[in-house]
Amino acid sequence: MEKTYNELHITPSSSVYPLFLDFIMSLSDEAIEENNGSIILRSEEDLEMLLFGVEAFTKELTVALGYDITLETKLLVKENEDWIAQYRNSVQPLYVNNFYIHPSWVEGDAGKKNIIIDPALAFGSGHHETTYGCLLLLQKYVNDGTKLLDVGCGSGILSIAARKCGAIVDLCDTDQQATDSAIENFKLNNESFNRIWTGSVQKREEEYDVVVANIIADVLIMLATDLQKAVKSGGLLILSGILDKYVDKVESKFSSMKLVEKYQKEEWFTLVLQRN
Results as ranks from 00 to 15, higher is better:
Asp68Tyr: 15
Arg88Trp: 11
Ala64Pro: 01
Gln86Thr: 12
Trp83Pro: 01
Val91Thr: 00
Leu41Ala: 05
Glu60Tyr: 11
Pro93Glu: 02
Thr73Ile: 02
Ser43Tyr: 02
Leu50Arg: 06
Thr58Pro: 00
Ala56Glu: 07
Glu44Thr: 13
Val54Phe: 02
Thr58Ile: 06
Leu75Asn: 07
Tyr67Val: 15
Val63Ile: 13
Leu47Thr: 08
Leu61Pro: 04
Met49Asp: 10
Asp82Gln: 06
Gly53Lys: 08
Leu94Lys: 08
Arg88Lys: 12
Asn98Val: 07
Phe99Ser: 01
Glu79Val: 06
Ile39Glu: 03
Glu55Gln: 12
Leu71Lys: 05
Lys74Val: 09
Arg42Gln: 15
Tyr67Thr: 15
Thr73Leu: 00
Glu72Ser: 14
Lys59Val: 07
Thr58Ala: 05
Glu44Ser: 13
Tyr95Arg: 14
Phe52Val: 11
Val77Arg: 10
Val96Trp: 03
Ala56His: 03
Asn89Lys: 15
Phe99Gln: 00
Asn98Arg: 08
Leu94Glu: 07
Tyr87Cys: 15
Thr70Cys: 12
Glu45Cys: 09
Met49Glu: 11
Ser43Gln: 02
Phe57Gly: 02
Leu51Met: 05
Ala85Lys: 07
Glu72Cys: 14
Ile69Trp: 03
Leu50Glu: 15
Val91Lys: 03
Val63Cys: 12
Glu55Trp: 05
Phe99Glu: 00
Leu76Arg: 14
Glu81Thr: 11
Lys59Ser: 13
Tyr95Gln: 12
Asp68Met: 14
Asn97Met: 05
Phe99Thr: 00
Ile40Asp: 02
Thr70Leu: 14
Ile69Tyr: 04
Leu61Asn: 04
Ser90Thr: 14
Gln86Val: 07
Gly53Arg: 10
Leu71Cys: 09
Phe52Asn: 09
Glu48Arg: 06
Ala64Asp: 07
Ile39Phe: 07
Lys59Phe: 07
Ala85Thr: 06
Thr70Pro: 13
Met49Phe: 13
Lys78Leu: 13
Met49Gly: 07
Asn80Phe: 12
Val54Arg: 00
Leu50Trp: 08
Asp68Ile: 15
Leu71Asn: 07
